[in-house]
Design a protein around this nucleic acid. Structure first.
Lengths: 224, 224
DNA sequence: ACCTGAACACCGTTCAAGT
DNA sequence: ACCTGAACACCGTTCAAGT
């Protein structure tokens, strides 16, 4: 018993960038963003915190690399042969689901503007928007809007889930208590919020997300 | 000279929630998110770190309160008498500009789902969408999409600015070097990104943001 | 070349002790 | 009631020393 017990399970394979990223993803998925520390990571890899710096530059580079692994997979959703609008919906949902399953990916994407994980999304969405044949002037803005919407909303959805989980609440009890708070606001100042408070507990984030994508697409269609 | 010099400027007024929030905003605006520590804050208020906890529960509550002060002001943009679509654009831009000027507000909004600052935005946008007379079933999703888009995109824009500033770069040199990186990607795998790389340095984030809002609005119009 | 782990310069938060 | 500031339990990162 004691701190030496685990020396027995000293690692067999040597350290590598890939093994570090794999272990990071496991920690991030299991314990969330604040669970990933260089100490926890080096414990799991049976090494010292300093060893990791031989393979990785910084924590933020590590997060971006872990994020890229998830995004690369999510963006591989099969869209071949689909009409571009369906492909955009499928890609968007695939990313939404990936960020929902790995909430830390949302934050990592925000902190890596223009880096590889974002470029993967840009490319896939861009190809489909191009197939939509919008005017040259509109293409950039359409892709930007979609990209930003997808990342922004998925990230917000993931943050919401983390927020309730961090407080030890389940989604429905949190939304119900929030609905009560909203409905008790002063009707003079918050008529709309009071009104829709009762729609809060039963809404479907994924469906709302998709509805936004479809609004975009029908906006694009009508301006052509 | 020495650490005792500043004892002379010991505070006159007693501590209060308002003074703490005001000082926090000054630090956040001046030194960014990582500049706000309880030590820096208590230095500026000429007190000890523990004193702040008499008035504020935690750092995250402090951030939410500071955020609310900025949002309350931004959401006060005059929209009386405007057609609802114009009002939505005006409110959206006012929020975009506020988050651009106070980048830390974006992060704070993400971490306070359903709290006061978010409700302020929800209410103002909701009132205008209601004036648009979309169908009952569509209203919630339209407001959600707009709210999420506004917060998500403004936040991403602010994060981009912080990213370049943290590296001591100016916006245009960063975008130009990013454009070069993009244009050097393998054309086989990244045809779209290679293609639009040259549009990156000269694009206007604020205009792109507004274009997205207008796509939403025209989507809403066409589905009515 | 790669790893070790103590040490450095920080954090947010708590709490006994003061006024 | 309100404030003080040392102390606690952490961080990411560095670096001399080892193999």
């Amino acid at each position: 018993m004691g701190k030496k017990t685990r020396t027995a399970e000293r690692r067999q394979e040597s350290l590598s960038r890939e093994r570090i990223i794999k272990a990071s993803i496991e920690i991030l998925d299991g314990d969330g963003e604040e669970g990933l520390t260089f100490r926890a990571l080096s414990d799991r890899l049976a090494t010292g915190p300093g060893a990791i710096y031989w393979h990785i530059d910084s924590k933020s580079e590590l997060l971006t690399a872990a994020c890229d692994a998830i995004v690369a997979h999510a963006v591989d959703a099969p869209v071949l042969g689909m009409p571009p609008e369906d492909a955009i919906c499928a890609l968007s949902l695939s990313l939404f689901d990936a960020i929902d399953a790995h909430p830390w990916v949302g934050a990592a994407l925000t902190h890596a503007p223009g880096q590889m994980p974002v470029v993967r999304i840009l490319e896939r969405i861009g190809q489909q928007v191009r197939a939509l044949h919008v005017t040259d002037g509109e293409e950039w803005q359409a892709v930007c809007a979609l990209l930003n919407y997808i990342v922004g909303v998925s990230r917000q959805n993931a943050a919401n889930a983390q927020f309730t989980r961090a407080r030890g609440l389940c989604r429905s009890t949190f939304l119900e208590s929030l609905a009560i708070t909203w409905s008790q606001l002063d009707r003079k100042d918050y008529p709309f919020t009071c009104d829709i408070a009762d729609q809060l507990p039963d809404h479907d984030d994924r469906a709302d997300f998709l509805a936004g994508i479809k609004l975009f697409l029908s906006g694009l269609r009508s301006s052509n």
